[in-house]
Design a protein around this nucleic acid. Structure first.
Lengths: 193, 193
DNA sequence: AGAGTTCAGTACCGAACGGTACTTATCTAA
DNA sequence: TTAGATAAGTACCGTTCGGTACTGAACTCT
């Protein structure tokens, strides 16, 4: 009922996500966001609420799209495969052929002014949650025997997360998929047998 | 000649560095910077030029101070000691007792608006330069025999840099020195014998 | 056809941004 | 003591920031 919206809300959100990805939360101005989204500010506010809520929606979309490898990797059959799928997923996600380099959850707001604190905290939680999921998966792996009983799931999870974060920074530095894959291989050399 | 400045320019720069460290380049406003520096905007402009040049000076200071471990680690006697000193230095630098968590060269401007592009590029160069220094040191290590002749210096350097970047993000996530040290130990497990 | 509802666009809000003229104060050199 | 030079402080510059009234336009339901 009422006038139907003239733009594709899904496409607009996808484009907003990419702007946040490339610019970070505070570096993305409403002018650029709405310009790339192809809508006016009023349409954006009507559809998403405000800038912060637009970012939250964009982050959700990021988790379900480019960062879906986080969840997918957990479903691999053994711990080594999980770790490898996680890191390779990170490589692909941080070097998309037609998109921004790096990781939205890292460069979205690593440091920020006070205005960005809420978003920064949101991203800290997001990143830490990914680590917890990995830790729980490795804990299960110890129970199931595909990690030695002496292995420390939390420690391994933190190491994999650290490598993934480092890959995100290296992607922002300009490294390509092939070079990042080498890093993954090197990181996996110390993995428990 | 002329009226002498009434503030300690070294102390002011130190404080500016910490603000940039905590807020990032674009997240640090002139109001907050000068407020923490204890001087007015005019004094800042007279002493440093503008915001970007202030950042460049702050980055120099960071390299000579908190990030001096980068240079110091290269002077260790063998490759393994270099790598270990580098990563342990990163842990200490990213978790200073009274300072901001993380690394200025990472969270200074990973993603930014167009206005911050110059600083972002500067930081990309800074980070890549560190990797090159490490690579050259490992190349020498191969020559000197404390790395196996089959070892790939560039690959090892990139891995260590990646781990250091990851540590910087983990520090921003709230991890403490003890937890980060565990990550260092885990990363070094795959180091060539 | 008319009423009610929702969307799009323009024009604008106060606040904060980085940066600067201009005045006043404090020093050195002659 | 005076002239020249530099610093500090105030008040302001134009621009951009995120966010919002308000006016029309486009739809559905009765």
């Amino acid at each position: 009922m009422g006038r139907p919206r003239e733009f594709d809300i899904d496409q607009a959100l996808e484009r907003a996500m990419r702007v946040f990805w490339a610019r970070g939360y505070e570096g993305a101005s409403l002018a650029e966001l709405t310009g790339v989204m192809g809508i006016t500010k009023t349409s954006m506010y009507a559809a998403f609420g405000n800038k912060e809520q637009l970012f939250r929606k964009a982050l959700e979309r990021y988790g379900a799209g480019p960062a879906a490898y986080v969840t997918r990797a957990l479903e691999e059959s053994d711990a080594r495969a999980v770790a490898l799928a996680f890191l390779c997923g990170a490589v692909c996600a941080t070097t998309p052929p037609g998109g921004p380099s790096g990781c939205l959850t890292v460069q979205g707001a690593l440091a920020s002014s006070d205005e960005g604190r809420a978003v920064r905290d949101l991203l800290v939680d997001w990143r830490n949650a990914a680590g917890v999921h990995l830790e729980e998966r490795f804990r299960r792996a110890v129970d199931e025997g595909d990690l030695p009983s002496g292995a420390d799931p939390r420690r391994l999870a933190r190491f994999i997360m650290t490598t993934a974060f480092g890959i995100a920074v290296q992607a922002a530095n300009g490294l390509g998929p092939a070079e990042l894959e080498e890093i993954v291989d090197t990181a996996m050399l110390g993995w428990p047998a």
